[in-house]
């Protein structure tokens, strides 16, 4: 694998409620509440299978969500992952 490997806490450490297209997440380790819009919940769901780099994330999203396999999707996913990282929901290593 190349590039950073991302991981997320087990889904059991998150309390999730859907509300009109948005996802409210209570993250137990941090005690913080996040209001997430797509594709953040999908990224967390994909990471539930285990750590992954960007290429692996794209593969998982294609399988789970019929993601269009066209090029240029990696930077978008990397940017969203970075946001989740800043929020403490995703970390590297």
């Amino acid at each position: 694998m190349t590039g950073p490997v991302y991981r997320a806490d087990s889904p059991a450490l998150r309390l999730t409620i859907e509300l009109e297209g948005l996802t409210l997440v209570y993250h137990r380790p941090s005690g913080t509440t996040h209001v997430l819009g797509p594709p953040a919940p999908e990224l967390l769901a994909a990471l539930a299978e285990g750590p992954a780099d960007i290429a692996e994330m794209v593969r998982r999203l294609q399988r789970l969500h019929d993601l269009d396999g066209g090029g240029g999707i990696e930077p978008v996913i990397a940017a969203r992952l970075e946001e989740l990282e800043a929020a403490g929901l995703v970390h590297r290593g």
Partner: peptide, 19 residues
Amino acid sequence: AQARMSALWEAEMARRALE
């Protein structure tokens, strides 16, 4: 319990930043 949780989380965030 809440203070404990947020203290440990803050330590974890520092750990990630300094890793």
